[in-house]
Amino acid sequence: MSADVAIGTKREAAATVIHPAWVRICHWINAVAILVMIGSGWQIYDASPLFDFTFPRQIALGNWLAGALLWHFAAMWVLVINGIVYVTLGIVTGRFRRKLLPISPREIFADAKAALTFRLSHDDLSHYNAIQRVLYAGIILTGVVIVLSGLSIWKPVQFQELTAFFGGYDTARYVHFFAMATIVGFLIVHITLALIVPKSLRAMVAGR
């Protein structure tokens, strides 16, 4: 009898796994890599700012340009390899399709209205609302853009076709910057909501 209960609980537990291990591992590796990329990227930006502001040195990584570049081009490998693993598994396992699709403008509009009036529920963590779907799909696409625009700045001769696709070297720098700004904007919302709904954070650590 008690054994039956135990088995039942186990099955239930298996069924309620929200994030499989590969998602959690990729998520946290990505979290570290992207913070290093952003922090060092700010320091690199400061060497030749695109706008009339610089990032405070206290929050920029690497102490000076050379250090920042060392960090940036080391974390780059972690970000890209982890990103390729994540996107491949996301497609192959069908997780992206199940979790992120379909994205319908009507639903986004309805859920955006609910979110703005604080009536959008996060109760069922295994199901993404339209806002989550569009944001998570959008941030994956932004990840692709930031990597490709980064490659086009790093290698404007060897990858000159890619650089041309982004409108040339100078324009690609702006694309890279705005992709960073998009990710930072996403992170502010993402981390705020994870703190407001702590069980979502627990799910990304423990899986459920």
Binding site: G62, N63, W64, G67, L70, W71, F73, A74
Partner: peptide, 22 residues
Amino acid sequence: TGCDIIDGDTAENLLRKVSSFN
């Protein structure tokens, strides 16, 4: 020390190794 690329020789050595790999 502010001129050091980062604090700690180990991290700096590791970063320089990645730079050689690059």
